[in-house]
């Protein structure tokens, strides 16, 4: 199993931390991982993107040329991200902020209203965790069944209070993905 993911969104949406947490959880589940962030030359307001690979085998190129799954967190990253999707791959859209579908009739497109779900849980900033749940659900690459234990080693103790809310977001993301599949 090798799951290559390309994630894009605007700076501040937690694209980088989504990618990092995804590979961290994958590593804790025994997979080999790589995470390569890329910021546009424009440091502020630019599009943040990351090449993320989790695999049972040694990872060759850490650069995702064709992604099994593309995650699009914002409208302005659609253009950059849509072409990264492999033929017949999956595109996860944050439908709270992305209003037009990518021009990829071959791809399976799943609409996850990440910001709305996150706000319902209590904090719009965990929209990226909602998306991580959806990514887990649709790919099955990283199970996130014991995410609470894993996040305890990811976050410093001072932030452990935030873990229950993150877990709620992940679970809600999984559910949202199930219901649109």
């Amino acid at each position: 199993m090798t799951e290559k993911t390309f994630i894009a969104g605007f700076g501040g949406q937690g694209v980088i931390s989504l990618g990092q947490m995804w590979v961290y959880c994958a590593m804790k589940e025994g997979l080999i991982v790589s995470f390569f962030p890329f910021y546009g030359a424009e440091k502020r307001g630019g599009i943040a993107r990351a090449s993320v690979i989790v695999s049972e085998e040694e990872i060759a190129s850490p650069i995702v040329a064709k992604a099994d799954t593309v995650v699009i967190m914002s409208q302005d990253s659609v253009e950059i991200a849509e072409e990264k999707c492999a033929q017949g791959g999956t595109i996860l859209l944050n439908s709270s902020l992305v209003k037009t579908d990518p021009n990829r009739p071959d791809a399976k497109i799943l609409h996850i209203p990440c910001n709305e779900i996150a706000e319902k849980i209590g904090d719009g900033r965990i929209a990226n965790m909602v998306m991580m749940g959806a990514l887990s659900q649709t790919t099955g690459a990283v199970k996130l069944d014991h995410a609470d234990e894993i996040l305890k080693t990811f976050f410093p103790p001072s932030k452990h209070g935030l873990i229950p809310m993150n877990i709620k977001a992940i679970e809600a993301g999984k559910q949202a993905c199930l219901s649109c599949e």
Binding site: V33, S34, F35, F36, P37, P62
Partner: peptide, 9 residues
């Protein structure tokens, strides 16, 4: 720069 910036286990 890729090896410096990339995260791996």
């Amino acid at each position: 720069g890729l090896i410096g910036q990339m995260m791996e286990s």
